[in-house]
Write a protein that binds this DNA or RNA. Structure first.
Lengths: 170, 170
DNA sequence: GGATATATTTCAGCCCGCTTAACTAATAGG
DNA sequence: CCTATTAGTTAAGCGGGCTGAAATATATCC
């Protein structure tokens, strides 16, 4: 395990399995709600950024504005999304999760949190501590990437979407 | 961070962001391949269990056998999947990734591995070590759960799918 | 060996997401 | 103001996944 190459393999595998499990879990949950994956994806996006417009959805999900508009319409009808006029630009809309929408998302996360919590509980206190620290770093890093992506999306840059992973100061 | 409650929150958040990022990445990748998510899901399943039949797909993906059969047909035509007769039961089929299918999956994982590797590179050697250990535990745990689920799926148990997370010996 | 169960395929039909294209409404620039 | 430009909606039509039902072929159980 001291070998950096083997360590990399170990971490990759762990991340792959985590992702795979999370995927299946989410798929199951979404199906149970009666929503479709694209619909749920929009709710997820709105969970992570508080509010945004139709065009942002379109960019983020890689679909046309028309498609985004149609999906949003369904979610609004389902009372999962609130769609109001942007007071500073009356052409644009502001989307936001309704309490019902928020609750639905949290229900989805809950399944994941259950096994994550169970896993944490099994760690030694010292391991637990370290794990927390490392995941805090991970959170920080992923947030940075998120910012970066949003900055690159919003303006009309045709500079494509290959956001670089922030480098350490090494 | 010493507080167990806050630590739990930290870890949950980190896992959520990891999952969210992995999702988006995967969605993008799948779209770029021209496959659909359900199709890709089947390839993924076959990546994690070496070989299985149509019914297993049906169970795993929560779709009817008919749907599974149709999806598999498309993947076979795309030369991503090999479908042979099970010699021990000539009604059943054995599915397996072709080299082309394997390569495709690995391409999908590669994007994730890039940022995971970059992240590892930024950790202190000691942190790195600990992270590796914890993820190895995670791998072990998730594998257990996987086994458990498969065992519960294969036979005709109508005991539904709420596999319990293995408890520690605490 | 004949009834029954199992594994898979095939087909018709529905729903849904997606795109293109035409349209409305509001902002921005001159 | 008058023309672009931008944000979003709407409708037609395609393609794909999914289901239910009917069909086939093999295995299993008296």
């Amino acid at each position: 395990m001291t070998d950096i190459l083997q360590l990399t393999q170990t971490v990759r595998l762990g991340m792959d399995l985590i992702t795979h499990r999370a995927f299946r879990e989410q798929a199951r949950f979404v199906k149970s709600t009666g929503l479709t994956m694209p619909q749920f994806g929009i709710l997820m996006q709105l969970h992570y950024r508080q509010r945004c417009g139709i065009s942002d959805i379109s960019n983020h999900m890689d679909i046309t504005i028309a498609a985004a508009s149609q999906l949003v319409e369904k979610l609004v009808q389902g009372e999962l999304l609130e769609r109001t006029e942007d007071p500073s630009d009356r052409r644009a809309k502001l989307l936001k999760l309704t309490p019902k929408g928020q609750a639905l998302i949290e229900g989805g996360l809950a399944a994941r949190h259950r096994w994550v919590d169970a896993f944490i509980a099994r760690l030694e206190p010292a391991e637990r501590e370290k794990f927390g620290e490392v995941l805090a770093m991970m959170t920080h890093t992923l947030r940075q990437v998120q910012e970066q992506e949003r900055a690159a999306e919003s303006p009309h840059e045709q500079a494509r979407s290959n956001p670089t992973f922030p480098r350490g100061e090494s």
